[in-house]
C-alpha cells in the first residue's frame, strides 16, 4: 500500500472511525500512544473524545511537549471536536488547568452548543470540499470564539466558525469520521502530501 502514514492519537476517543475514514481517503492509518510511534508519522489526527481526559493522558504519558514541538516544526494535524479544542491557543468554559497542544491561533468555547440533548446533525458548505454539502454531526461540540488573521474559516453554523485551517493544521467542531463521507479526511491527506513530509 502507498499513501502517507497518518497517526491517530489513541489515548481515548473514536480512533477506529478516523482509521476507517483515513483508509478511505488513501492514507495508511496507525495508532499513536508512544513517542516512538509519533516520530514515525507524516501527519496526525486528534480524534473526538473528552478533551480533559486526552489532555491529562498526554501529560501522564509524556506526549504533550513532544507534540507541541512537532506542531511548531510543521507536522500536519487534523483535530475533530476534542481534537479542535486541543489545537486551540486557549479554551473558554473548559477547566483552567486543561492541557492544550496549541498551534491554531484561536480561542474555542467548549460545549458551546449545549449538552447532549442539544447535539445535532446539519448539512454544511465547507470551503475546499467539492460536491454536495458535508453532513456534519455535532456532539457536545465546541465552536471558535475568536480567531487570528492567519486562521482561515472553512465553515460556520449560524455565525460561529466550526471548521478552520491555518497552514498544515485543520480542525472541525463536528465529526466527519462518523458519516462515511471521507472528503474532509481527503482534504487533510492532501495537506499532508503537499507538506512535503510524505515519505
Amino acid at each position: 500500500m502507498s499513501g502517507p502514514r497518518i497517526g491517530i492519537l489513541a489515548l481515548q476517543g473514536d480512533v477506529r472511525e478516523h482509521a476507517r475514514a483515513l483508509s478511505a481517503a488513501g492514507a495508511r492509518p496507525v495508532e499513536v500512544r508512544r513517542l516512538a510511534e509519533l516520530a514515525a508519522v507524516d501527519g496526525l489526527v486528534l480524534p473526538g473524545g473528552e478533551s480533559t481526559t486526552i489532555g491529562r493522558l498526554l501529560r501522564v504519558f509524556e506526549l504533550l511537549e513532544p507534540l507541541r514541538a512537532a506542531v511548531v516544526a510543521g507536522l500536519p494535524v487534523f483535530g475533530s471536536c476534542a481534537g479542535m479544542i486541543l489545537l486551540a491557543r486557549d479554551v473558554v468554559d473548559g477547566r483552567p488547568d486543561q492541557p492544550l497542544i496549541g498551534g491554531l491561533d484561536m480561542v474555542v468555547r467548549r460545549n458551546a452548543f449545549g449538552r447532549q440533548v442539544d447535539s445535532f446533525e446539519v448539512d454544511l458548505d465547507v470551503v475546499g470540499v467539492e460536491g454536495p454539502p458535508v453532513h456534519a454531526v455535532f456532539i457536545r461540540a465546541p465552536w471558535v470564539d475568536k480567531a487570528g488573521d492567519a486562521v482561515e474559516v472553512l465553515a460556520r453554523v449560524a455565525e460561529a466558525p466550526v471548521a478552520v485551517r491555518q497552514g498544515p493544521l485543520l480542525a472541525t467542531a463536528f465529526h466527519p469520521e462518523l458519516t462515511g463521507d471521507s472528503r474532509m479526511h481527503r482534504l487533510f491527506v492532501d495537506i499532508v502530501r503537499s507538506s512535503g513530509s510524505g515519505r
Binding site: 472511525e17 473524545g49 473528552e50 447532549q116 445535532f120 446533525e121 455535532f138 453554523v157 449560524a158
Partner: peptide, 27 residues
C-alpha cells in the same frame, strides 16, 4: 425536539445518540 434554532438541524437522532457513546471509547 431540542432548542435548535435552525430548522435544518436534527437533534436526538440515532447517529447523534450513538455518536456520543463513540466519543467515550477507551475511557
Amino acid at each position: 425536539a431540542g432548542p435548535a434554532t435552525d430548522s435544518a438541524r436534527h437533534a436526538g437522532t440515532a447517529r447523534v445518540k450513538r455518536g456520543m457513546a463513540e466519543m467515550l471509547k477507551g475511557g
